[in-house]
Design a protein around this nucleic acid. Structure first.
Lengths: 349, 349
DNA sequence: CTGAAAGCGCTTACAG
DNA sequence: CTGAAAGCGCTTACAG
């Protein structure tokens, strides 16, 4: 049978099929399938099990994912849809997802450029891969409407969208309020806000929670005090440079940024402008990226548990894919303010 | 036929198949396939083309990726294998790959934890997805041996491994030499090197090129002057803290890091130790991440064109997958030193 | 416990 | 230009 195999597989694609394993082990492909998938309990004799296992090893057989998926109606692919992976925050989320998903599922990353979300058409193409499950990070409602997903779906960082699917959220509002309180205590009365342009819910929550608390504490925002850019150091720097003269005139003494990445841009530009930080201008962000501890000055930021976000979301999805119930469909992870030199009222060395 | 469809698809999975489209358009599934794949030239009448197109639109038909892949023998998935995505450098590479790959291919990210490379077993599982092509970033030779890849393959950042496959490389050696020259001119005579632990070729090239040029220029390295950690700010910080006392005794005045991420850790720890930078210790890295411009002090780094790396690699792979020849199987992109305050000999404000 | 057979959805020679 | 049919590799009732 070896020679027959070689005759049929002339040049390259020496793909080992279940039929070859079956022939070698002297069983049917049905038995090979059962063994390869570990569904032998009470269905395959010990004898055949070891015979098939031996053949699998000798031939180096691996179940073909495509054939398997077609027969089963679903693949082992998990698709992670995200608006922006250039944010280092996201790398941690991915690592967390992979960790909890394990080796049984392949993680497929779907990213679009410049923080845009995929359109209906893209979604259809993704669904054509028959994913075992879907993870959607920081979605907007419109996207979820299009995605009338059949199949397991878990949302990440999607505050206010709990109605669409099980989700894992971050209580960014808590950190945002802490930040407002902190700035108020430091004596700030006039602040500006540099938002992320993606328009995803989490950024709205951050901004609103901050502004609401700020208002309560006697901090106001000038008319043109809220602007937004993509999550990009350069874009943020440029936007700040353009806005600063007017902000300064309005008496702004602190800028809060939707992400640390935005804050780095502001930091950069503020230093170029010769501003004393936080003396003349205090700066803070969200995410608490690793670089925030080493920036100049170190950056005050609302810490968000990225890895944990990925782990929890992956875990929930896994349960869903395995048909297990979710004890708790809605999870919320804590956030909290990390105060560093960029807002610290006391003189820093 | 609407009702028949509904009868056959009772509850959820309302998957629209080619057969449904065929029935609606009054043609065979073969014709539907031809139209859906744009292979109509001289094979389908205008009449049937428009009839099928209409049916496709009305039904919202999307070619099933699994069925299609099985019939064709290959999927539309491109797998990107990489040892570490937590490095922000990598996010740019991914963006570049996506840009040049276009919408016809799905990018599947294969990442392993802690900078480890996938084993033979993982590779087999990946190949079971029948990828249209493979992109391997910063591989080591052992991995490529296992990966006796049939099918299109392009390597990224794999110096010295050009024999295995077409590749896109960065001339990191050039930047490394510039860095050595720069430090020599600044008066350094004794340096240490904090390497990345992944042991991929690019890091060897960086280190060797730097050390060779440094040697030429009269810079020496103490016996225990070369250490390595994972690409992680915290790990680098800890390693530096442990090594510094001995280094200091050996007269080390500069630390070169395999990546900027390592350098951030050193920066952090050096500041905690109260060291004057670059007065008492100069620090430099590789990658030129966006944060290097805003760190304290700003970080001297060898700039590497990440996005371009991804774009070029994606482009080469695309050509391969489409059966087109590669005019130039080996591409090399430039690197160059960006001097900032962490090594700048003149007093900085 | 075992295998023959149908079927997953599509593509591609092939015959007309 | 068109369609019937085989086949991609696997899984799963089903009959034994």
């Amino acid at each position: 049978m070896e020679s027959a195999e070689q005759l049929q597989q002339p040049a390259r694609s020496r793909r080992v099929t279940a039929a070859m394993v079956a022939a070698r082990a002297g069983v049917s492909t049905a038995t090979v399938s059962l063994v390869a998938n570990g569904k032998t309990a009470g269905r395959v004799s010990e004898d055949n099990i070891s015979r098939v296992r031996a053949a699998i090893t000798e031939l180096g057989y691996v179940v073909d994912g495509i054939g398997s998926s077609l027969a089963k109606g679903v693949s082992s692919i998990v698709i992670l849809v995200a608006p922006d992976i250039s944010n280092p925050f996201f790398a941690k989320v991915i690592a967390g997802v992979r960790e909890s998903l394990g080796a049984d599922y392949q993680l497929l990353l779907s990213v679009t450029d410049a923080g845009e979300f995929p359109q209906a058409d893209d979604v259809r193409k993704l669904m054509a891969l028959r994913p075992a499950g879907l993870l959607v990070d920081a979605p907007n409602a419109g996207f979820l409407e299009e995605l009338s997903a059949a199949g397991p779906l878990v949302l990440l960082d999607a505050p206010g969208l709990e109605a669409y699917a099980p989700s894992v959220n971050l209580d960014v509002a808590h950190g945002a309020r802490q930040l407002a309180a902190h700035l108020a205590e430091a004596g700030h009365r006039r602040v500006a806000y540099l938002d992320s342009v993606t328009g995803t819910a989490t950024f709205d929550v951050r901004r609103r929670a901050f502004l609401a608390e700020a208002d309560t504490r006697g901090i106001s925002v000038p008319a043109d005090g809220i602007i937004s850019t993509t999550i990009d150091v350069g874009a943020a720097a440029a936007a700040f440079a353009a806005a600063w003269p007017e902000w300064q005139r309005s008496g702004v003494t602190a800028v809060v940024c939707g992400t640390d990445t935005h804050a780095y841009g502001v930091l950069q530009e503020a230093r170029v402008a010769g501003l004393q930080i936080p003396g003349q201008l205090a700066i803070a962000g969200f995410d608490d990226l690793p670089y925030s501890a080493t920036s100049n000055p170190s950056l005050t930021s609302v810490h968000l548990p990225a890895t944990s976000l990925g782990v929890q979301a992956g875990g929930q999805l896994r349960r869903l894919m395995e048909g297990r119930p979710l004890e708790q469909p809605q999870l919320t992870l804590e956030s909290s303010l990390v105060v560093r030199n960029s807002t610290r009222p006391t003189p820093w060395k």
